[in-house]
Design a protein around this nucleic acid. Structure first.
Length: 427
RNA sequence: GUGAGAUUAGUGUAGUGGUCUAGCACGACAACCUGUGGAGUUGUCAGGAGGAGUUCGAAUCUCCUAUCUCACCCCA
C-alpha cells in the first residue's frame, strides 16, 4: 500500500514529462535554426528581476503588473518578481551590458519560462514557456516585417497551416495620447449604450473597449474613431511601409484596427498570430509582439528603437497535439548487451565504453540477472542485435551476437565485437 | 477575482445509497522455462482527490478545500 502523494505541482504549473519533451525540443530546434539564419544570438536572463523593472517597463496600469505578478521580498528587503514576460528583462540586459556599443542592430533570442498569476485555462498557465526574438537599435519598418516573418516562419516550419496574422498600429507618444482622449470622449458621451464591462473599461483602459464582443457595443465601436485614422505622419508612413514589406514577402496578414495589446511599452506596430482552429477551440494568440521604441529609454538608456515578439510554447504544442502531429522518436538503440554471471557483469561496463567511444548506441539492463528478463527487455526496446556475454564467453574472451529477427547467433572474439557490430549495422 | 462542470490503480474507463471484498483494458513485476525474447497461462503490484457531514449503511447525497476543464477578464 503506497500512500497517495502528498505533494503536487502548484496550480497552473506542470511537469514536462519525457513524452512531452519532444515537442519542446522540436520547437527549440526550429527556432534555433531560424535564429541562426537571421543572425540572432541566444541570451538567458535570471528568472527573477527587480519588481521595479516590470512596473516601469510593462506599465503600472496593465493587468500583468496589476494582478498577475509573482512578487517576493528578499531578506535584504528587495522586491523581486518572477518575470511575466521576456522583453523587459532582455532590454535590461541590453542596457546593463552596454550592448548599445555593439554594432547595431543587436538581435537576441530567448527560450524560457515566464510566470503569471492567473486562473489556469486552456493554453493558459501560471508557468509557461516563451520563445522570444528581439531587435534593438533599428527603426526601419523592414525590421517590423522581419520579426513577423520570423514568427510566421517558425510556426510554418512546425507545420501549422491555418495561420492568421493580425496587425495594427497603435501610434506613439506623439499621436496616441490624443487618440485616447478622442476615443474616451466618444464613448463617454455614449456611455449609457455600453455593456457593464465596457463602462468599467472606459475608466481603466478605453482602448480595450474596441475588443468587446457584445452586440450593443459593436455597433457603437464601428462608429468610433480608429487609431489608424489618427496616426501622426511618422507613424502613418511607418505602418504603410510595414504593410508594403509584408506584401512583398507575401505574408497573409489581416488588418485589425481593434488590436490593442496589454503591455504599455508598445508603439507603432503591434501584431498577433493565431491558428484558425478546425475544432473551434480557441486558446488565444500563439504569438504576438510589436515595436517598442520607448522601452530602452524608459529603463534609463538612450533613445533606442526596438522591435520584437514572443510566442507561447504550450499553445503551439496545444495546436500540434490537436492536429495529432507525431514525431519520429529519436532513434532507439539497435544493440543490447545481456550479461550472465559475475565475471560477465564485470566486463560489461568496459564493453559499453567501447561502444560509446565508437558512438554506437547500446542499451543494457545490468540490474537484471536472468537472461530471459534481459532478452525480454531487449525485445521491448526493439533492438536488432543482442550481445550475450555469459560465464563461458567471459572466460574465453568471446561474445555471442544474436540477431533478434532471425534468432541466428554467432560467436566472435570479444575484442572484435565493436567492429563486427558496426559491420552488421551498415548492412 | 466571478460563475459553471469535473476528479475512481501509472494510463484509459465501468459503476447513480446496500449486490463493492470497487469490475474491465493497457501497464509494471514475476513464475511456468535457475544460459535465450516476442505468444500463452497463472500470480503479484496498484484506485474512490483531501477533509467534514447526512444515513443503519456513501465511490454514489450535502458542504468545505485542492486541482483540472470551460466561460468572463486578460493574454503567450
Amino acid at each position: 500500500m503506497v500512500k497517495k502523494p502528498k505533494f503536487q505541482s502548484p496550480t497552473g504549473m506542470h511537469d514536462i514529462l519525457p513524452e512531452e519533451q519532444k515537442y519542446f525540443q522540436r520547437i527549440y530546434k526550429v527556432s534555433e535554426n531560424i535564429a541562426n539564419f537571421y543572425g540572432f544570438k541566444k541570451i538567458d536572463t535570471p528568472i527573477l528581476e527587480e519588481t521595479e523593472l516590470f512596473l516601469k517597463g510593462i506599465g503600472i496600469a496593465t493587468d500583468i503588473v496589476g494582478k498577475q505578478m509573482f512578487t517576493l521580498r528578499t531578506k535584504g528587503g528587495d522586491y523581486l518578481t518572477l518575470r511575466p514576460e521576456l522583453t523587459a528583462p532582455v532590454a535590461r540586459a541590453y542596457l546593463q551590458h552596454g550592448m548599445f556599443n555593439l554594432p547595431q542592430p543587436v538581435k537576441l533570442w530567448y527560450f524560457g519560462p515566464c510566470f503569471r498569476y492567473e486562473k489556469p485555462q486552456l493554453g493558459r498557465f501560471r508557468q509557461f514557456w516563451q520563445l522570444d526574438f528581439e531587435i534593438f537599435g533599428e527603426k526601419s519598418p523592414l525590421i517590423d516585417a522581419q520579426i513577423i516573418q520570423i514568427f510566421y516562419n517558425i510556426l510554418r516550419e512546425i507545420r501549422l497551416k491555418n495561420l492568421i496574422i493580425k496587425i495594427n498600429s497603435i501610434g506613439d507618444s506623439q499621436c496616441r495620447p490624443y487618440y485616447k482622449k478622442l476615443l474616451t470622449s466618444f464613448f463617454r458621451s455614449r456611455e449609457a449604450a455600453l455593456c457593464s464591462d465596457c463602462k468599467r473599461r472606459l475608466r481603466e483602459n478605453p482602448l480595450r473597449i474596441l475588443d468587446c464582443k457584445e452586440e450593443k457595443c459593436r455597433s457603437l465601436i464601428s462608429r468610433a474613431p480608429q487609431m489608424l485614422d489618427h496616426l501622426c505622419e511618422e507613424c502613418h508612413n511607418h505602418f504603410r511601409e510595414v504593410l508594403e514589406f509584408l506584401d512583398e514577402i507575401e505574408l497573409p496578414y489581416h488588418l485589425d484596427p481593434y488590436l490593442v495589446r496589454g503591455l504599455d511599452y508598445y508603439t507603432k506596430t503591434v501584431f498577433e498570430i493565431y491558428e484558425e482552429s478546425e475544432t473551434g477551440r480557441t486558446q488565444g494568440a500563439l504569438g504576438g509582439g510589436g515595436r517598442y521604441d520607448g522601452l530602452v529609454k524608459l529603463l534609463g538608456g538612450k533613445e533606442t528603437p526596438a522591435c520584437g515578439g514572443a510566442a507561447g510554447i504550450e499553445r503551439i504544442i496545444g495546436v500540434m497535439k490537436e492536429k495529432g502531429m507525431k514525431f519520429l522518436e529519436s532513434a532507439p538503440p539497435k544493440i543490447f548487451l545481456a550479461q550472465l554471471g559475475p565475471l560477465a557483469k564485470r566486463k560489461s561496463l568496459k564493453i559499453l565504453e567501447d561502444f560509446r567511444k565508437q558512438r554506437i548506441l547500446i542499451s543494457e539492463s545490468l540490474g537484471r540477472d536472468s537472461l530471459k528478463a534481459q532478452l525480454s527487455r531487449a525485445n521491448k526496446i526493439g533492438v536488432k542485435y543482442v550481445l550475450i556475454l555469459g560465464q563461458k564467453e567471459a572466460l574465453e574472451d568471446t561474445i555471442i551476437i544474436r540477431d533478434m529477427a532471425t534468432g541466428r547467433q554467432e560467436i566472435v572474439k570479444l575484442e572484435k565485437v565493436v567492429k563486427e557490430v558496426e559491420k552488421r549495422l551498415k548492412k
